[in-house]
Design a protein around this nucleic acid. Structure first.
Length: 288
DNA sequence: TATGCGTGGAG
DNA sequence: TCTCCAAGCAT
C-alpha cells in the first residue's frame, strides 16, 4: 500500500482551516463539547454555538450544576436535541466519576453518555495526544476511495477502526495529525458530492482515480422525508417549549395547530420518553 | 445490524 | 422545488 500519511499530513499543515478547537490551549472540555455539537451538524453552524456554550459553562462541573433544561435551551436549533441532554449527563458523570476532569482513557470516555467510538477517540487524540485511529464519515469516505477504489464507503463496521489503524503513523503526534488530516481532506476536498480531485494531495495514490472513478457499491440509506414527519412534529413541540418565557405550557396549547393531533400527541409522548420534556398536571416543561 | 433522531444550506 | 448531506449515538 502506498504511503498516504506523508503527503496527507504535508497538505494538512499547509491547508488546515483555522477552527477554534485547533487553537493551542483549547481545553479538553471544549474539545468534548465541540465533538458533541459536530455529531451530524456542519462546522459553520457549530462554531457560534460552541463559543456561547463554553462562555456560559467553561467546565463540566459548571454545566452539571445547572438543570438539563438549561442545556436543552442553550442547544437552541443545533438539531438532535438529545445530544444536549446527553452532554449534560456526561458532565454530571465527569464530575461524579472523574473529579470534574475530562478523562483521557478511551474506555472511560466510552462509558460516558452520548460518547461512542468516534467521539471517544477524537477526544483522546485531539485533546490529549493519545494514539488511536479516529474514524468518522470523512475518513471512511477517504479510505473507501483512496484504498478500496470505491465512490462510497460500505456500511459502518468495527473493521473501519482496524483499517484506519493500519495506516496510522507510529509516533502519537504524527498519528493525531494523520487523523485530523484525513478528516480535513474528506471535509474540504474528498467530499461526498463533487470532490475536488485536482486539488487532492493523494490523487496519485488514489485507487478510485486509478480505476476511473467508478460509481459502484452505493449502500447509503436514504433519509426519510422530513416534511410532515414525527421528527418535524417533535421539533415544533420542543422549539415552543424552548422559546417559552413562562416555565411551563398547558399541554393542549403546545403545537395546537399541528394538522395531525395523533401525531402531535405521539411527538409529545416520545419527547417525554426521551427525557427532553416533562409532563405533569396538564403542563409541559423542559426537564428540571 | 437497522432504524429513529433536527435543522439548515448547497446544488 | 426537492434531494442530498452534515466530525454519530443509542437501542
Amino acid at each position: 500500500m502506498p504511503d498516504l500519511a506523508t503527503p496527507l499530513v504535508a497538505w494538512y499543515r499547509a491547508n488546515a482551516r483555522d477552527l477554534p478547537w485547533r487553537h493551542p490551549g483549547f481545553s479538553a472540555w471544549g474539545t468534548l463539547v465541540s465533538e458533541f455539537m459536530l455529531q451530524q451538524t456542519p462546522v459553520n453552524r457549530v462554531i457560534p454555538h460552541l463559543e456561547a456554550w463554553l462562555a456560559r459553562w467553561p467546565t463540566p462541573t459548571a454545566l452539571a450544576a445547572d438543570p438539563p433544561a438549561e442545556a436543552v435551551r442553550q442547544w437552541a436549533n443545533l438539531g438532535y436535541p438529545r445530544r444536549a441532554l446527553w452532554l449534560h449527563r456526561a458532565a454530571v458523570e465527569i464530575r461524579d466519576r472523574h473529579g470534574g476532569a475530562v478523562p483521557r482513557d478511551v474506555d472511560d470516555l466510552l462509558a460516558l453518555t452520548g460518547i461512542g467510538d468516534y467521539t471517544a477517540r477524537a477526544v483522546a487524540v485531539f485533546a490529549y495526544g493519545e494514539r488511536h485511529p479516529v474514524v468518522d464519515t470523512n475518513t471512511r469516505r477517504v479510505l473507501a476511495r483512496a484504498v478500496d477504489g470505491r465512490a462510497h464507503p460500505s456500511a459502518p463496521s468495527r473493521r473501519d477502526l482496524v483499517d484506519m489503524a493500519a495506516l496510522l503513523p507510529e509516533d502519537a503526534a504524527d498519528a493525531a495529525e494523520f487523523d485530523a488530516a484525513a478528516m480535513e481532506l474528506g471535509a474540504t476536498v474528498c467530499t461526498a458530492r463533487a470532490p475536488s480531485c485536482e486539488a487532492c494531495p493523494i490523487a496519485r495514490q488514489c485507487a478510485w482515480r486509478a480505476a476511473g472513478y467508478p460509481d459502484t457499491g452505493d449502500t447509503r440509506r436514504r433519509q426519510a422525508r422530513y416534511e410532515g414527519s414525527d421528527r418535524q412534529a417533535r421539533g415544533v413541540v420542543l422549539k415552543q417549549l424552548r422559546d417559552a418565557a413562562a416555565h411551563a405550557i398547558a399541554a393542549d396549547r403546545v403545537a395546537a395547530d399541528w394538522p395531525d393531533p395523533q401525531q402531535r400527541d405521539r411527538a409529545i409522548d416520545s419527547l417525554v420518553a426521551d427525557g427532553l420534556i416533562e409532563a405533569a398536571d396538564g403542563l409541559l416543561r423542559l426537564p428540571g
